[in-house]
Design a protein around this nucleic acid. Structure first.
Lengths: 207, 207
DNA sequence: TTTTATATGTTAACACTGTCAACACTGAGC
DNA sequence: GCTCAGTGTTGACAGTGTTAACATATAAAA
């Protein structure tokens, strides 16, 4: 914190400024065109300043993805109502898709191929695990409550996950653009189908 | 076709050579690092020679994706047995996943975000539609035969598609790496769950 | 307070990329 | 044989990620 904020040599908080700028940039131009130099220009520092805070571009992307998973987990958790039933799964699925719709570029970063060797980044893995655990806990509860088939809850969870991820991906990448019906109704129906597939009885979910 | 093949000024068939080289490159280094200049070097032409055959890099990627969809459609079609029942859907789903496993980088290109404004590329759209139509026809047949719920066959098809796409994506991006069970069993089970969700009765698919 | 060390920021440079304009060669049809 | 369109080449420009060497500001140590 310098006295003279206008003539400051030190920026103050380059990392968070970079993240904010990056979120803006990817929202505008897509994650594909994101450039470190442009980010540096955006926040008014030299082109190599970011390297004091991120080892390389990949690390900045990883951090973007990590925070994305954190936000996703948070939203999923928020979507769980007090009373648990099969519709809870739909609610969480919808929350998931809402996130993907709101932050498509961040979502691409989280799951896409832009980040290679994600396993090497512990923080990212941990964050994505936490997001998955929200679904996993629901599956466990579902099996315990007798709503879901008595298979591995992990498999139930992965089933839900892949279903909702498939929907999110196709949605983001524009494969549902020329849909005749309302997109939200459609998504709700798709999730409901999937839940029907792992629910114990042949329920009629009025999605 | 020059007489002297060794001192040839003209390469002969740059486009197909480029495609072959590109397929090799993305298989080795991933689609993210693909560079036009490297491709040109690979096939032994100057760095700007590709521009005589592809307007820009994007067009080359589009062609890669287009041929991918064609191959995918072909494999799906091949996987359909003479006799139709619910298991047919599983078989096609498995064929789909086999393709994704065999050509992960091409798959990423086909669905991922690397190609922006895919709608502008007519050939690509047509090719991807054809791939979808294979699934759509199955859904129609499924509704006609009374195996599937009497909803929009298009919705049934999209349900199958997003399910299998979700699995493929997560598989490719390494989210199933630390799976305890056999991956093929797992995938088969996941597809079966999904089909159970859109089948008319509560069938017990012995996947 | 002065000194020192560490964190942070800058400039200059390298190798690489996509792409364009200008030029050169080759082969087919007149 | 000449023309010309198709194909290939060279050279250049702007942009990128990244490193090394240098500069400054702040916090800790003296």
């Amino acid at each position: 914190m310098t006295q003279d904020k206008n003539n400051q040599y030190h920026h103050g908080d380059v990392p968070t400024a970079l993240m904010a700028a990056a979120l803006l940039r990817i929202k505008q131009d897509g994650v594909e065109k994101l450039s470190l130099r442009a980010l540096a220009r955006d926040i008014g520092v030299s082109q190599t300043a970011p390297y004091r805070h991120f080892k390389d571009k990949r690390c900045l992307l990883v951090e973007l993805a990590r925070s994305g998973f954190a936000e996703l987990a948070n939203r999923q958790q928020q979507a769980i109502p007090a009373e648990f039933n099969l519709k809870t799964l739909i609610a969480v699925g919808i929350a998931y898709l809402e996130f993907a719709k709101e932050f498509p570029e961040q979502y691409k970063l989280m799951f896409g191929t832009k980040i290679e060797n994600r396993c090497e980044h512990a923080g990212l893995m941990e964050s994505s695990m936490k997001s998955f655990e929200v679904i996993l806990n629901l599956a466990i509860k579902g099996v315990e409550s007798g709503f879901l088939i008595e298979k591995e809850p992990a498999h139930m969870a992965r089933c839900l996950w892949s279903n909702v991820h498939g929907l999110a991906s196709l949605l983001i990448d524009g494969f549902y653009n020329n849909l005749e019906t309302d997109i939200d109704d459609f998504l709700r129906q798709q999730i409901a189908f999937n839940i029907r597939g792992i629910s114990k009885d042949l329920v009629d979910l009025d999605y």
